[in-house]
Every structure is written in C-alpha cells, then in structure tokens.
C-alpha cells in the first residue's frame, strides 16, 4: 500500500499506544489551536488609541500597542531625523553577511575584510562624528540595541575565545596561567555582576574626568563573557583532534601557526559548531540583561510601554512580540549552524 494513508498508518497508527497518543494529540490540537488563532488574529484589534478601545472592539489581542510603539521598539530613542543611519547600517549588515556566511556568494574571498570593515562603518554610522551628527549611545534602544550588542559579541568573542583556548594549551606557562585564570574567573561570575561592574565600578578605576561610554563598557563585558565560554567550547574541539594530526603536520615541517590554521583549527572549529552557535544564542538572549543597568533593549521598551496608563495590562502582547523577535533571530542561527555542519561534512565515516 502506498500514498498518504499508508504513511499515516505507518507513522501514527502502527499499534495501540500509538493510536492513543495520536488521538490525544489531535484532541489537544483541536482544543488549543483555534483558540490561539482567534486570539492572535481573528479576534485581535489592530488599531486603537488605548486598551479600553481595544477591548470594546474585540476580545482577542490588542496589537495596537505594538503598532503605536513599533518605531520605539526598533530604534529606541535614536533621533528620528537620523534614523536613516540605523536603516543603512542594517542594510549594510545584511549585505555583508551574505558573502561572510555563504561560500558561493560573490565576494566571499573578501569575507575577512568585509567582516573587519563592517563594525567600523556601522559604528561610525550609528555613533556619528567625522561629518555625521554625533548621537549619544544612551539614545540607542530596542532591536537596534540588541543587534549592536549581539553582533559585536558574536563577532569578537570567536577570535578572542580562540586565542584563549590556544593560550590555555600553550607551553608558555605565563600565557597558560593567564588564560585559565581569565576563563575561570569570567565563568565563575554571573553576567549581571559584570554588567554592574561595567556600569558603576569601572568609574572608580578610571581617572576622574575621563568618561568611558556606558554602551562601550557593556560591549566589552558581553564580549569577554561570551569569549570565556567560547574558549571552553573550542578547547573541547581541539581535544577531539587525534594526536596523529599534529604529528603529521609536524613531520612535514609546518610551523605551529600554519599547522593550527590549516589543519587543526578547521577540524576543531567544525566539531565545535554546535557549541559555538549555542554560545552565540545564549549571548544574544543575554543581551536582555542590560535592562538592569538602564539600557533600553526591547524588553525595556516593552516595560516602559506597559507603564503607560493607556496600555497597562497588555503584557501578553508586548512580551509575545519581543519573544517572536528573539525566536526568529535564534532560529535563524540554529538553522545556519545545521547548514554549515552539513556543508563541511567530509568525514564519510562508515
């Protein structure tokens, strides 16, 4: 027997337990999904001035709050006249990511240069100076802030983590001790503590009169935090490389750095991809912690919106909206990691 019926029989109805589970699942879907869809779409109010108007119009979600606050969620308090700079940075980022992420894209040869140039150009666009109106970083907020912190952390934690992982295995005792000390210290304290240090304590250590941009301090802390985890992920990958690979490389007369770059790291990083992306995803979600030191990430904007008397009580809508944004970003990273793993699969182990 072939066709969809056979497929259903085989996968859902092959024995009594299976039949029961299938029935329960169907019942659950029928009970919940229509309700959810009603709330999300069919009974939702899309435009309104405030919560009461929503409630009067429809029994479902009140998306009007998101509609009204959308630009706040996206740009934070970035000056409206300058928002084209944020948009341009975003477009540049997308165009830069294509050759970086996909090896068959045009310009892939220059991926490393592009990856170096992007933060400089985007940083200049966002912060200003050199001909552009300066924008204070405390006006950054919303998804844009998440992207700035997340992408900086993602971009810098990999090379830094790599150096720490190599340092941890170094024959030079001093480098080894420094790497181990750094990694263990950073892993031993919560990120929030580091963010507090960034926001308050660093000022004590800096000479009076010197101010050091808060966002910049946060970027450093988030990067350092992620790089300690990254180092351990990569160390795991390095340890999985058989000794024979090092010996083969040595026996050909390759230098340490050449054999690392050409032989050991490509293999170690490939094994580490799931762990690396895992670290990226948690870093990305951890950016929401900056709310604690007063930066307005999407959750901060959400809370501010809920504090508005016109919109109180709409936390479902606000948090769901923020959750969807994070889910899309993180899911994309997870899929890319799978794609990369499959593409790099060259060990046809039987």
């Amino acid at each position: 027997m072939v066709g969809p019926w056979a497929w259903i029989r085989k996968n859902f109805l092959s024995n009594t337990t299976n039949v029961i589970i299938t029935l329960l699942a169907c019942w659950f879907i029928i009970e919940t999904v229509p309700m959810l869809l009603d709330w999300l779409f069919f009974d939702a109010a899309w435009t309104a001035e405030n919560r009461d108007e929503c409630r009067a119009k429809a029994s479902g979600a009140c998306w009007a709050v998101i509609g009204e606050r959308f630009s706040l969620f996206t740009y934070g308090f970035y000056p409206i006249a300058e928002r084209w700079r944020v948009n341009l940075s975003f477009v540049l980022m997308v165009f830069a990511l294509i050759p970086i992420l996909f090896d068959r894209a045009p310009l892939h040869k220059y991926a490393l240069y592009i990856a170096t140039a992007l933060p400089l150009v985007a940083g200049w666009l966002l912060v200003g100076g050199l001909g552009l109106t300066p924008v204070e970083t405390d006006q950054f907020g919303g998804f844009m802030l998440t992207l700035v912190i997340g992408i900086t952390g993602i971009g810098f934690s990999l090379p830094l983590g790599l150096l720490l992982a190599l340092g941890r295995q170094s024959n030079l005792r001093i480098i080894q001790i420094f790497s181990i000390g750094f990694i263990e210290f950073i892993r031993g304290v919560p990120l929030i503590t580091l963010l507090f240090v960034a926001s308050t304590m660093l000022n004590y250590f800096l000479p009076p009169g010197i101010t050091f941009d808060l966002l910049f301090r946060v970027l450093i802390m988030v990067t350092l935090f992620a790089s300690a985890y990254m180092a351990e992920v990569i160390r795991g990958g390095l340890q999985a490389i058989p000794k024979g690979q090092f010996e083969a490389a040595d026996s050909m007369g390759l230098h340490y750095w050449s054999s690392m770059r050409l032989i050991i790291l490509p293999q170690a990083l490939k094994i580490s991809i799931p762990g690396i992306v895992n670290t990226y995803i948690s870093l990305y979600k951890d950016t929401t912690l900056v709310i604690i030191i007063g930066l307005l990430d999407p959750l901060g904007i959400g809370r501010a919106s809920l504090a508005d008397t016109r919109w109180t009580g709409l936390s479902n809508e606000v948090y769901l909206f923020v959750a969807i944004f994070f889910f899309i970003s993180c899911f994309a990273m997870a899929r890319y990691s799978l794609y990369l793993e499959n593409k790099l699969k060259t060990d046809y182990r039987r």
Partner: peptide
C-alpha cells in the same frame, strides 16, 4: 624544521587530513 622538510614519514594509521 629543516630536517623535517627532508624527512618524510608514513604512519601506521595514515594520519591523512580528513577535511582536505
């Protein structure tokens, strides 16, 4: 390094580079 350039070695378990 000079010596290693002049001396080839073949191992019991081949030690080929699997990613290349």
């Amino acid at each position: 390094e000079t010596v290693r350039r002049e001396v080839g070695m073949v191992f019991q378990h081949f030690n080929l580079f699997p990613h290349l």
